[in-house]
Simulated assay, not measured.
Amino acid sequence: MPLTTPDGRYIIVRGRLWRSANPDLSESERARLVNELMDARRAVKAARAAQDRKAEAAAHHAVDAAKQALGERGPVWWRDGAPDLNREMAKNTPYAEWLARVEKDDS
């Protein structure tokens, strides 16, 4: 399970922040959207294997739509005006000190 920032906005993968899904989504809505995302990712793989560029583009669009609906892309889901640090290296963000403490505690 990836490390999650204390505010729940990001998970950390190999030191990089990735925006978490909107926690305000109902469990059933989140599950539905995750299923759509997985279906779209499988469609990308199939389109690549078939070398079908049109189908691949459509599948990428479906991935993006699912990620936006989940809150992982597009407008941020939090309302306090904090900036979106998606894809930033955690060590270069306000989470740096927190992450250093967590990593020190884990060692």
Results as ranks from 00 to 15, higher is better:
S26Q: 10
R41S: 05
A43L: 11
D7Q: 10
D24G: 08
V44G: 05
L37K: 13
V44D: 07
D7C: 08
I11Q: 12
W18E: 14
P23W: 05
V13F: 02
A21C: 11
S28V: 15
A43S: 13
A50W: 03
A21Y: 08
A21I: 06
A49Q: 15
A31S: 15
W18D: 09
N35P: 00
A49F: 13
Q51R: 15
E27S: 14
R9A: 06
Q51Y: 09
V44K: 09
E27W: 10
E27F: 11
E27K: 13
P23L: 07
N22D: 15
G15I: 02
S20M: 13
Y10W: 06
L37H: 13
R16V: 15
V34R: 12
A49T: 15
E36K: 13
A55Y: 02
R41D: 08
A40P: 04
E29I: 11
S26Y: 06
R32H: 12
A21Q: 11
A43H: 05
S26L: 06
A43E: 11
G15C: 09
W18K: 13
A40L: 03
A40E: 03
R53Y: 02
A55Q: 06
S26W: 04
R42C: 00
E29C: 10
A49I: 12
N22Y: 03
A47Y: 08
D24Y: 01
G15H: 07
G15V: 05
V13Q: 09
R16C: 00
P23N: 10
L17T: 06
E36M: 10
R9L: 01
P6C: 03
R9H: 09
E29A: 15
K54E: 10
N22M: 02
A31T: 14
R41A: 00
R9E: 07
I12G: 01
Q51D: 15
A46V: 10
D24H: 09
A40I: 02
G8N: 09
D7A: 09
R14E: 13
A43G: 13
D24R: 12
I11E: 11
A21W: 07
G15A: 05
I12T: 01
S28R: 14
L33Q: 06
M38L: 12
V13E: 10
P23T: 07
A43W: 01
P6S: 05
R16G: 00
P6Y: 01
G8Q: 06
P6I: 00
L25C: 02
S20W: 07
E27P: 10
R16T: 14
P6D: 01
G15D: 04
R41V: 01
A43Q: 12
I12H: 03
Y10S: 08
E29N: 13
